[in-house]
């Protein structure tokens, strides 16, 4: 049991840096498109790891099912909205940043 518990803690602690890098990316990156990269990928992975950790700590099946459902919802919502924002940005003629 101690190993599972330790692994759960490790997963949660591993997830947090991804959220931090998502936020840093949102601030440092030069345009909408690159910021979308940081937001979609880093935050989803961070949430995935935290949810994995919490699943290992969960006491009943209902909690596990609910956590998995939340993960699934956020994953679909953020990848679909990533496409939607990039698509609308292109239609609004926002040109992607290029390294000069």
């Amino acid at each position: 049991m101690a190993i599972v518990h330790g692994f759960a803690l490790f997963m949660i602690l591993l997830g947090i840096p991804f959220f931090i890098s998502g936020t840093i990316g949102l601030l440092r990156l030069p345009d909408i498109y690159t910021r979308l990269h940081a937001l979609t990928k880093a935050d989803n992975l961070g949430l995935g790891l935290i949810i994995l950790g919490l699943i290992l700590e969960a006491k009943d099946l209902a909690t596990i099912a609910r956590l998995l459902f939340i993960w699934f919802l956020v994953l679909t919502a953020s990848s679909a909205s990533c496409h939607l924002i990039a698509n609308t940005a292109l239609k609004n003629k926002i040109t992607p940043w290029k390294r000069p």
């Binding site: 949660i12 997830g15 959220f19 998502g22 936020t23 949102l26 909408i32 910021r35 979308l36 937001l39 935050d43 989803n44 961070g46 949430l47 935290i50 949810i51 919490l54 956590l67 939340i70 956020v74 953020s78 909205s81 924002i85």
Partner: peptide, 17 residues
């Protein structure tokens, strides 16, 4: 809007923790 989305994902993680 993307910053608001960040709050969404972070908010879910905060509430679960």
């Amino acid at each position: 809007m993307m910053a608001a989305q960040l709050f969404g994902t972070c908010g879910v993680a905060i509430l679960l923790l």
